[in-house]
Design a protein around this nucleic acid. Structure first.
Lengths: 360, 360
DNA sequence: ATGAAAGCGCTAACAA
DNA sequence: TTGTTAGCGCTTTCAT
């Protein structure tokens, strides 16, 4: 059986109240000696606080819920990780629930979570159709972090797609390109819209007329990227550079260029978006704009924390900026760069083993 | 304020005990009429059980903990997802904690989790050095699911690497190859050992002598794959096929072949391992053996559930088999296959939107 | 078939 | 500075 404060109080010859105060560093004064003794006994007995009992009493809980469509997505994973890291600093744990894009699951998840007296919910990349209704009933604090929807959602954290897109296009312009093609993403995504807008406005701001024939539509997939890029490359007067709305379509562009005997970056400069892992090991490696998932996760955790402490007014919308990562495909890299390594399990494991002398 | 069973009892004019029985479908007899009435009232009032209070009373909890090194890894994510899906069927939630390969974090995580009266812990791809000690103190049920360590760990779920490796090598042999090169992974991994063993034994079982000059060492990374493959391809008598111990090294092999003007699969057959996403969009797409992460997750959840219900003897070790996925790189694909699409957010979102008539 | 009451481990108001 | 005690919401034993 786990040890309780009652056992500690008996061992120390004090009341449970004193034990509780000593253990929690309460405001209530406790004799330093006694406290030290209690702490030692707790240590010796291997005491761990029963969070359940504490929660029932205090009506607070160290758990926050993360609801996402599918944690298997590389984007979602990073967001979740960002959330967890930030929340951990304040002693919170995260329950992660997948809804598989199913509003009923989402609703169910919200009910379950609120039943567990969680402190708040972060919706990470969910369609959150059902969210609003259900949440009005319960008065849980919640934050939305995503990249899918039209802006303007209260308490949300989104990437600054416009900024990132302009970053990419400006880079190509600075490299001297005037005919810059664009591979557009699917219409229904906010990210598509914004990236496209960034492309157009950056061109115009630089005095380059927007030319619709240099835009081809894709669906964020590699094959459609291939098709769309082919369309532009087969133009009578093809672009000298292509900005693909995401990395996968950029990969398709690499293949399309290969099939036409075009070298990247020599004959065609290429920039992607998202900084997916593949952009680091493709050939050539992709210059791209990072989608700052990790930072978005942190930001949303921060926002939730503020909400929980009533430090933040509601209805905020936070935009997080990504950065331009210059690799081989745009032709601007000074040296042939070694492709960044995968965040390596091997390295970390070796480090761990070295530190622990092979005991692992 | 959330509604409690007391409020329901008052509304229904019965005692809280009756309400509790009615709500939980208790063994204790309850009048059918009364029960129906109570259920209706609960529904109307929007009652959700307070899991915290219930847990404190019953000493049980609907939460299990997942401890992993880093949920950001594509492998870990799938394992976690498998666990969550299975556990959800039995009404459990999962708290996910990352340790970043740090034994102190792991120990801390265990303490925190046991303090929360979780039912059990699944260690997903953790070094779990500290685990054993800490867990002896607490008597929580736990399961280890991983692909890193020597076999024989109690209550663990691991992939059947030997089987998978033999699958791959046998496939190349069936295609008529006799000189099959092997790109080995780093020594310290169990998966490296087993995959290498599978390579050797399958050759021998087929009457092909093992030739050490056809083996080159890598570190599971793309660049080292390039280097190792180059070594084999530059041999006086190079192999006609290469089996890379993982997909990333197979990607390196593609690049090495490219640089030598070798076509895959025409001049060189290639098989990878892991079925990472990149194997579906590489050019050529990779024939590979799947690492059944999702299934491993499910299996470990299943094992934990059995443990919790005392249905399983301890000290089990479950091996999960992957399968051979035939794509372009081995030359066996009958038709030029379209690369499988990424599990597409777009598709799913569209499906969701269609179903919901654009309300999303 | 229903109710009264104890108590899970903890915190905090009140008393000393 | 310490102790006593009530009670968080729920389940369950015992009594009716």
């Amino acid at each position: 059986m786990p040890v309780t404060i009652r056992q500690i109080s008996e061992a120390a010859g004090v009341s449970v109240a004193t034990v509780s105060r000593a253990l929690n560093g309460s405001d209530h004064p406790v004799n330093a000696e006694t406290q030290k003794r209690i702490l030692e006994i707790a240590q010796k007995l291997g005491y761990h606080p029963n969070h359940i009992a504490r929660s029932l009493r205090t009506d607070r809980s160290p758990i926050i819920g993360i609801i996402c469509d599918d944690i298997t997505s590389a984007f979602t994973t990073k967001i979740v990780r960002g959330v967890q890291d930030r929340l951990k600093e304040d002693g919170y744990f995260c329950v992660v629930i997948n809804t598989d894009w199913d509003p009923a699951s989402e609703q169910r998840a919200i009910q379950d979570l609120t039943g567990y007296l969680i402190e708040g919910i972060i919706f990470a990349e969910t369609v959150h159709q059902s969210a609003s209704d259900e949440l009005k009933l319960n008065d849980k604090k919640c934050v939305f972090v995503h990249r899918l929807f039209p802006k303007g959602f209260p308490n949300s954290v989104i990437p600054d797609e416009l900024y990132g897109s302009r970053l990419a296009v400006n880079h190509l312009i600075q490299l001297g390109h005037k005919r810059i093609g664009y591979l557009n993403g699917p219409e229904q995504f906010y990210s598509s819209e914004e990236r496209f807008l960034g492309y157009k406005t950056m061109l115009e701001d630089s005095g380059i007329a927007f030319d619709p024939t240099l835009v081809a539509n894709g669906d964020f997939g590699t094959e459609q990227g291939y098709v769309a890029a082919s369309q532009l490359l087969d133009l009578p007067e093809p672009p000298t550079a292509i900005f693909a709305a995401n990395d996968l379509m950029a990969i398709g562009t690499i293949y399309a260029a290969q099939d036409r005997g075009l070298r990247i970056p020599d004959d065609l400069a290429l920039v992607g978006y998202d900084n997916q892992y593949i952009s680091t090991i493709s050939r050539p490696s992709l210059t791209t704009v990072s989608l700052p998932c990790f930072e978005m996760g942190r930001a949303s955790a921060e926002l939730l924390l503020a909400l929980l402490n009533d430090e933040a007014a509601d209805s905020q919308e936070i935009k997080v900026k990504g950065e331009l990562l210059i690799r081989e495909s745009c032709g601007a890299a000074r040296d042939p760069q070694p492709a960044p390594r995968m965040p390596s399990r091997v390295d970390r494991l070796n480090l761990f083993r070295d530190q622990n002398n092979g005991k692992g």
